[in-house]
Amino acid sequence: MMKQKWKPGNMIYPLPAVMVSCGNHEHANIITIAWTGTICTNPPMTYVSIRPSRYSYELIKETGCFVINLTTRRLTKATDYCGVKSGKDRDKFKDMRLTPSYENETHCPMIDESPVNIECKVKEIHELGSHHMFIADILNVYVDPHYIDEKGKFHLNKTDLIAYSHGAYLTLGKEIGTFGYSIKSKKKVKNTNKMK
């Protein structure tokens, strides 16, 4: 059968499901974002794309900073809630019993329950259409020491991260390979066929 042709749309899945915290001590908020990712390694840069109608849009525009908080299975309900409720009339930190931490360079709230907090400073805003893209420098990364072993290695995949795919939250599942495994040298298999 031939594949069906659909109209243009975003079908790149799965995506990260992250909670982006923003604002300050007086007006702290959380928005769940799927449109985010890495755009440069050196210097380290990222982005989030947000609709201008969202409450967090103005907070980020005013303060010039935000924090990307990675999410886990335990944070799934909070991740969903922070994506469907507005911070205009709700205190999402309080509603979801999340702990704001301001111990960072920008004093932008971080979610203490997240295993990884990525502190970002806005560099540019691109008005693209339905969403505006905030391109940002990554200032600092904060990690939960519970996932650091005695040799100093951080085990991110043991934090039980979740992803978002086509309307559903998913766990990442088991490891099926590691970076570069497809080209690692293999032991030569001896030819056991004998010429007759």
Rank of each mutant, 00 (worst) to 15 (best):
A34D: 12
Y169F: 12
T192S: 09
I148M: 11
F93M: 08
V189T: 09
S182Q: 04
A136L: 12
P100R: 03
L75N: 00
S165C: 08
H166F: 00
M2V: 14
A78E: 01
K158N: 09
K123E: 12
W6N: 15
G152Y: 15
V48N: 13
K174E: 13
P52D: 06
R54W: 00
M110R: 05
I50W: 11
V122I: 14
T178D: 13
V48W: 04
R73V: 06
R54G: 00
L70F: 05
G177V: 09
T106Q: 13
I30D: 04
M19I: 05
S185D: 09
N117M: 05
I68W: 02
L75E: 01
N193D: 06
I148P: 07
M133I: 11
L172P: 07
P43R: 03
G37I: 01
T36N: 10
P145S: 03
P16E: 09
Q4L: 13
S21E: 03
L170V: 06
T63G: 01
G83C: 14
K158F: 05
I183W: 08
G23Q: 15
K5S: 04
R51T: 10
T32S: 11
N191S: 08
T72L: 01
V116I: 07
L59K: 04
N10K: 07
E105Q: 12
E150V: 11
N42Q: 15
I50Y: 12
A136S: 13
D80Y: 07
T76D: 08
H126G: 03
I12C: 04
Q4V: 06
S114R: 10
A163H: 10
T63W: 07
V122D: 05
S21K: 01
V141L: 08
L128Y: 08
T178S: 14
D95Q: 11
N104D: 05
S114D: 02
S182L: 03
I125T: 04
S130N: 14
L156A: 14
D112C: 11
T178P: 09
A168M: 07
E124S: 06
E150R: 09
C40L: 04
L70Q: 05
R90A: 14
K123I: 01
E127I: 02
Y164T: 02
C65F: 14
D91F: 13
P44S: 13
M195W: 11
D160Y: 03
L59D: 08
Y102V: 02
L170Q: 14
I31W: 05
C82T: 12
G83P: 15
Y142M: 05
R73D: 02
S185R: 08
T41Q: 13
Y147G: 03
T99V: 04
T79P: 08
D91I: 15
I135D: 03
S86T: 14
K158R: 07
I118E: 00
S21I: 00
C65N: 08
C40G: 02
T63L: 14
K194E: 10
W6I: 11
T41Y: 14
G152Q: 14
Y13C: 00
N117E: 00
P52T: 09
I148H: 06
T36L: 01
Y102C: 01
